[in-house]
């Protein structure tokens, strides 16, 4: 993909710092995602990946640093702000309410309504099924409780939520953890569908094998710092794996 070279940046996070009490969780991180680009964000537990992403999705606030979205400086203070910009986050397992139906989950917090705030259930049902179909997921009914679905299907529900609201960037936090091999393949297939739609993806994981196939670029983090930022064509899986190990050891 040569177009990668000249991609306009969609999101730019500049010199981000974050403390949690006395823990210095992010120590001046620069992070960028291009339009339609898939970035693998890699690192051990506690490296700061999730913190960085939660700042972008409005769940935490940076103590210092700036965020630019489509080259405009933005102030993201809540998940609502971030979603308004077109940033959707698919948290690991956390984003769904198990006893609620697929449709109610997909539209959670942004329910389509008729008069007086009454839910437009027909629209909810139809559009959820449509979004799921787009991802290649054929589920029986939009009214099934989410807890009855498989792990891969659940990820599909969470991703179709993002699709439906015309996200420009989808953040996936460990989307393949706790999934079977077949389900992982499903999720990677979802990501390919998103790439076709020119939707940018941040794929957070500590499993290199899952991310290597689908990502265009890799950002390696350790102890609150960015240790490496490499394009896929510049690196092999083995080199990347060595890089991750070395980053974790550097003091």
């Amino acid at each position: 993909m040569n177009e990668n070279q000249n991609r306009q940046p969609l999101v730019r996070m500049v010199n981000i710092h974050k403390w949690f009490g006395r823990v210095y969780a992010l120590r001046g991180v620069d992070f960028e995602v291009g339009q339609g680009e898939t970035v693998g964000l890699i690192g051990d537990n506690g490296a700061g990946k999730s913190t960085l992403i939660k700042i972008l999705s409005g769940y935490h606030r940076a103590d210092r640093g700036e965020i630019y979205f489509e080259e405009h400086k933005v102030n993201i203070t809540s998940p609502r702000d971030s979603r308004r910009l077109g940033i959707e986050t698919v948290y690991q397992e956390q984003a769904l309410a198990g006893d609620l139906s697929i449709a109610r989950n997909i539209f959670m917090g942004r329910e389509p309504v008729k008069n007086l705030g009454i839910l437009d259930r027909k629209k909810m049902d139809e559009e959820s099924m449509k979004a799921l179909e787009e991802l290649g997921l054929h589920l029986k009914s939009p009214n099934l409780p989410v807890k009855t679905l498989s792990g891969g299907e659940r990820q599909g529900v969470a991703i179709s939520r993002a699709l439906l609201f015309e996200a420009k960037l989808i953040i996936m936090d460990e989307p393949t953890v706790a999934l079977s091999v077949k389900e992982v393949r499903e999720v990677l297939e979802f990501i390919r569908k998103l790439q076709k739609e020119r939707i940018a993806v941040i794929f957070i994981t500590h499993n290199l094998y899952h991310v290597f196939d689908v990502a265009d670029r890799f950002v390696v983090m350790a102890r609150g710092k960015k240790m490496a930022d490499v394009k896929k064509e510049e690196i092999s899986l083995d080199e990347l794996s060595e890089l991750v190990v070395k980053s974790a050891l550097v003091e």
Partner: peptide, 16 residues
Amino acid sequence: IYATGDNQEAARAMGI
């Protein structure tokens, strides 16, 4: 109400 009771974190993340 359901989302808050079922999974508060998810509900918050979805802007509720």
